[in-house]
Nucleic acid binder design. Structure first.
Length: 311
DNA sequence: AATCGTTCCTGATAGC
DNA sequence: TGCTATCAGGAACGAT
């Protein structure tokens, strides 16, 4: 389940490989997985890769097609498109430079087999003029690609990204905006369980079920604690814990948890799951106090914590 | 306005 | 073996 660190890992992997490359073709295998007219980016060049919350942003620039019959008078500008990608639970973006890249042939072939592409979960394929292909796989079909056309003069997308994405996303955890003062402001307004607030994308961008549990463990705060009951020092600790676990997630290339879904763009698993303190460790020992890790359901989500040292 | 319940989807798993 | 029911979960959406 890709959260901020997983999407960031994918972003970095893609940035190294497809920026400056021209899109040759886009094939949509499952229409519901692609919103918008995928043909619009064919012939376009990838200009930048970005991330906002858990959404990956591929910026493309298309030059106007040459006039047919020489009768076209209107001057055309190049078109800028943003391909937004949300992987939700089981989405994968797998990049292959050559079709015969079988580096994972000897890996145990499990549910999310990536050695043969496309596979039965491939929902869209983007081809590039250099022969590379980007496969969008998604078992459960919750993920999506969405093409958003932007007025060509809108150069500073960062400031208008909520508008482009069409959602009101909260601050990025690595930004200055993500301050103790900000957290105090949003927490004080609600009695909801703190974990649900951490996962609310309109409050904090990019934190999902895994890193919410891990951050609350790090800060020694009970996931069910009403947000407005957090004290100043708890808020300070929690802010640091969120940044810390997200950085750790990026450092270890994201986490491939029990559902095996997450892969980086070359198809490899992350390693962060090997460093989970509580997530998916029900019944295990707390690495801090030795207590037994407990699993509860909170807002319909599996929630892991140590009852002994999280208060 | 804030919060909760439902929905989307597929595969694993349990129970018979 | 083979069937059915249940469960997991991000976030949009509708209901309260």
């Amino acid at each position: 389940m890709p959260e901020l660190p997983e999407v960031e890992t994918i972003k970095e992997g893609l940035a190294k490989r497809i920026v400056g490359v021209t899109i040759n073709d886009v094939k949509v295998l499952n229409p519901k997985s692609f919103i918008g007219n995928h043909q619009e980016i064919i012939g376009g060049k990838v200009a930048a890769i970005d991330r906002r919350a858990k959404i990956l942003i591929i910026k493309t620039i298309s030059n106007p097609s040459p006039p047919v019959g020489g009768s076209l008078r209107t001057s055309q500008q190049s078109a800028i498109n943003y391909l937004l990608i949300h992987l939700k639970m089981t989405g994968q973006l797998i990049y292959r430079l050559k079709i015969d890249d079988l580096r994972f042939k000897n890996e145990n072939t499990q549910r999310y087999d990536v050695e043969k592409l496309p596979n039965k979960y491939t929902r869209a394929i983007i081809s590039f003029t250099n022969g590379a292909k980007l496969y969008f796989n998604d078992l459960r079909k919750f993920g999506w690609m969405k093409l958003v056309k932007v007025k060509s003069q809108m150069s500073n997308v960062k400031t208008k990204i909520n508008e482009v994405i069409g959602a009101n996303l909260g601050p990025e955890p690595f930004s200055d905006e993500f301050s103790p003062e900000y957290l105090k402001k949003i927490f004080s307004k609600t009695v909801r369980a703190i974990k649900l607030v951490l996962m609310d994308q309109e409050k904090i961008a990019g934190v999902g079920n895994i890193y919410a549990s891990e951050a609350l463990f790090e800060a020694r705060i009970l996931p069910t604690k009403p947000a407005k009951k957090l004290g100043n020092s708890e808020i300070q600790k929690l802010r640091e814990a969120i940044v810390k676990v997200l950085e750790k997630g990026i450092k270890y290339g994201g986490s491939t948890s029990a559902d095996e879904a997450y892969r980086n763009i070359t198809g490899e698993k992350g390693k962060m799951q090997e460093h989970f303190a509580v997530y998916e460790r029900e019944g295990g020992k707390c690495p801090r106090c030795g207590g037994m890790i407990k699993k509860i359901r909170l807002g319909g989500r599996g929630t892991y914590y140590c009852p002994k040292c999280q208060k």
